[in-house]
Design a protein around this nucleic acid. Sequence first.
DNA 1: AGCCAGGGAGTCG
DNA 2: CGACTCCATGGC
Length: 281
Amino acid sequence: MAVRTYPEILLPAEGLDLADTLGCGQTFSWQERKPGQFYGAAGPHAVIARQTGDRIALRKSDGSMNEEETSYWNRYFSLDMNYTSLQEQFCTHPVLAQCVATAPGIRVLRQPFWDTLLSFILSQNNHIPRIAGIVQRLCSGFGPQIEEGIYGFPAPETLAVLNPEDLAPLQAGYRAPYLLDAARRVTAGDVSEEGLAQMPTPEARLALMRIAGVGPKVADCVLLFGLGRTEVAPQDVWIRRALATSFPEGIPTAAAGYEGIAQQYIFHWARQNKVQPKQSD
DNA sequence: AGCCAGGGAGTCG
DNA sequence: CGACTCCATGGC
């Protein structure tokens, strides 16, 4: 019998490591359903992604990828950025260089604002694998099916009309009402990506923090991962430990303008090495 | 069994 | 402002 081959797009992605990039805690929307094969969605798009050498192969179960989608994923994976020169800057700092060396294939993704907002509301006081589970149940239970078996995040209007009890299957605990508040504020136009994009970072941060369940850390993650503010460095528990023990001077100035990207390497390094909190006597 | 997790809200001083 | 508590859930 004939094996049908589906069109596959190859994106040049020199130095990128797909597993590290998707698994380093910046996105929770991808599932490795088969070894090396990541099923995921972002905004209105969904693909199966795998890595072949220095390329990312993207495949859809039906139909071909058009040019618009190709450029969408190119931007999503930040393939237009020069990470070689960026990492050269980072590596002038010895400790930061070690963090980069732990997973040099990490790229900070440019994710959709709404996806990122929901994801990091769910992230508070939570484990990465469990966040991914809640995100999966949120999308498959309330979101649109974009590709066969791949669901996107539910639209703000979809969530806005629900009650907390409706979200019980998510097992999101006390975070469920936070999702609804975010949905209502976005639906009402109280918060919008366009509005935030025009604001200076500190102002956008305060605007995000008016959403229930969004504090400084979640707001910073949305700014960095969902609004492309690469200078924003979210302060989570691992980062606080890493800074206290290994970066007494704070984030190196070698990372100016890209503190958030530098910090993603620090985050991964700290978590992988289970950096302990600084013990005072 | 208990501790912890890409925290935040509420309260008290 | 800072410190302190509670929050729901499940992996380890």
